[in-house]
Design a protein around this nucleic acid. Structure first.
Length: 552
RNA sequence: GGCCCGUUGGUAAAGCGGUUAAUACACCGCCCUUUCACGGCGGAGACAUGGGUUCGAGUCCCGUACGGGUCACCA
């Protein structure tokens, strides 16, 4: 009896690995093309860190003429969630990160290296496990959970390294015929990797992001096939990334310490190992301590959060890209209208330690992104958001589309667009005073600034309405009239004039404009007043101004 | 605890043995300006710490502190 017999007893029906090696030939890609993947578990929640990985992986693949694929790692069936795969696919799509190949819904896929869902590849893993058993590089382990717990307790008491290695790896030394006997007797078992590593020896590894790292060799006989016949992450990673032709494994740096094991697995299986790029996680500060963004505590950890508050997906993408390569924002300033895709990402320029998530910075980026949108785009995107999250805003926008477009178009599309909307959530507050039905319903509070004398305000407004206001004026005429009005009341026509001789005036044109602005809109800060008047129309302007002075 | 990794203004982050230690966001001031925003100019603010190596250290080496990761039939 030898290893081959043992392998046959355990996996009598699986195919030979040569079948899979032929079925999944090496990819025919140009020199330098990088193949990457996003490989999440369908646990019902796409984390911002997962998106971050995807942004990087997709970018690297695309800019080298390679492939970015999506593989679902559902080998832990306990954690699986209904419609988890669809959730991931939809989220990637929303953020423009759809893969070139991989799963396209719960159980269908595109691409030549599928299935791209691990639970559907069970027999593939088993074929390779069988191969390892035949080689004597894997063996069945009959240890019960209680035995393992006991062993761990002993190790801890003796202050030894925990785990299944060296003298502790009992089943590793069971003779083949004995093992076969146990299996035939119906004993439960799992398959372990027979590590040839030695803890006192070092291996050198070069990580694309983290640089050179020395590790002790792995000497743990880790589980490769679990009791349910499915592989563990480590084994599936080796088999899948080999068969699928992944050239660069881009993943979270919680995997860094598994590298010695993974390298060993690749070697033992006779695979060429991929390059590794371990990404530092996105962190959050709490009570002075840094920690990973947590799905339980931090709403911003879920990518769905950004849709809720109304931050455009491309703003999130750009923010993530900026965390990845901080020279992105410099590039962005120089290439304002270029597509994000044109930026060249460099893995080796990524930070080795985790960046704190900065929502203020994100909003700044978002404001810039939104300021570039046309009024039609703003209208459509804000409306889409409002349909889900703000019924009132939805009504407002839909009731009069043409009018809303005019409102949203104020100071938009010119050389210095306003940057006052960071999230769709902000839109309502920004435009609501422009709608008469809302404006007159709300009864604005007028908080005057420099000119506060009621009689003075009344006179200014009345004079403006009676002698100067004409909705048909062009901007220059309109503005000259405000100047005339200012002069008439003893205010300087120009700010400069006033500053040169403040004693000669009661104030300057800015003070007069502010009074009109406040009476017109109920607020001191608004976009260009001329445009506002044009949009509001004659009747509304007069009605608003009159209402303001009546209340004085 | 063992093993890895890290630590430059509030945040992100250039820097690669010789720099007045960039830049962006945030903050403050000024200018522009009918307000705000935009834009322009300016300001405050940092190399965790102790030892080496060197003519010279943010940069190289060692220690310490602090932070992060990892040590499952989870990924």
């Amino acid at each position: 009896m030898d290893y081959k017999d043992l392998a046959n007893v355990i996996f009598p029906y699986v195919k030979d690995i040569s079948y899979y090696e032929e079925k999944y030939p090496r990819r025919n890609l140009p020199e330098g093309a990088v193949v990457t993947r996003f490989a999440p578990s369908p646990t019902g929640f796409v984390h911002i860190g997962g998106l971050y990985q995807s942004v990087i992986a997709k970018k690297i693949a695309n800019q080298t003429g390679g492939v970015f694929f999506l593989r679902i790692e559902d080998t832990d069936q306990k954690r699986e969630v209904e419609k988890g795969v669809t959730g991931i696919i939809d989220a990637l799509k929303e953020f423009g990160m759809s893969p070139d190949e991989g799963m396209i819904n719960e159980d269908e896929y595109v691409g030549n290296y599928g299935p791209y869902k691990q639970s559907l590849r069970k027999e593939i893993y088993q074929a390779y496990a069988k191969y390892l058993i035949e080689k004597g590089d894997a063996y069945p382990c009959f240890c019960k959970q209680e035995q393992l717990d006991e062993m761990r307790a002993k190790q801890e008491n003796a202050k030894l390294r925990t785990g299944y290695y060296g003298v502790w790896s009992k089943c590793r030394h069971i003779p083949v015929n004995e093992a076969i006997q146990k299996i035939n007797d119906g004993e439960d078992y799992i398959i372990r990797f027979k590590s040839q590593g030695r803890e006192d020896k070092k291996i050198k590894h070069h990580d694309v992001i983290k640089g050179n790292i020395d590790f002790p060799e792995n000497d743990q006989d880790i589980v490769i096939i679990k009791a349910d016949g499915l592989p563990t992450y480590h084994f599936a990673h080796a088999v899948d990334d080999h068969l699928m032709g992944t050239t660069h494994v881009i993943r979270g740096d919680e995997w860094l310490s598994s590298v010695p094991l993974h390298l060993q697995l690749f070697q033992s299986l006779g695979f060429k190992s991929p390059k590794y790029a371990h990404i530092a996680p996105i962190m959050k500060e709490e009570n002075g301590a840094k920690r990973k963004l947590s799905k339980r505590k931090d709403p911003e950890a879920a990518v769905s959060y950004y849709a809720e508050v109304g931050i455009p997906e491309e703003a999130v993408d750009e923010y993530l890209l900026n965390i990845a390569n901080s020279n992105f924002e410099q590039w962005r300033r120089q290439n304002q209208d270029a597509k994000m895709e044109e930026f060249e990402l460099q893995l080796n320029k990524m930070s080795v330690s985790g960046a704190l998530f900065d929502i203020v910075k994100l909003c700044d980026i978002s404001k810039r992104v939104i300021s570039k949108y046309t009024k039609e785009e703003v209208y459509e995107k804000a409306l889409n958001w409002a349909k889900k999250y703000d019924k009132h805003l939805e009504e407002l926008l839909e009731k009069n589309k043409e009018y809303s477009l005019k409102v949203l178009g104020i100071e938009r599309g010119n050389l210095k667009p306003r940057r006052d909307i960071g999230k769709w959530e902000d839109v309502k507050e920004n435009i609501i005073y422009m709608y008469d039905e809302e404006y007159f319903k709300e009864k604005p509070q007028y908080e005057f600034q420099k000119i506060t004398d009621k009689e003075e305000i009344k006179n200014i407004i009345n004079t403006y309405i009676e002698e100067y206001f004409d909705i048909n004026d062009d901007k220059e005429t309109w503005f000259n009239k405000i100047k005339d009005l200012s002069e008439k009341f003893g205010y300087a026509r120009e700010t400069k004039e006033y500053k040169q001789n403040p004693d000669n005036f009661k104030g300057h044109i800015g003070d007069i404009s502010t009074v009109i602005r406040i009476c017109l809109t109920g607020r001191a800060n608004t976009p260009d007043m001329f445009e506002i008047m044009k949009v509001l129309g004659k009747e509304s302007v007069i009605k608003r101004l009159k209402m303001a002075i009546e209340k004085l």
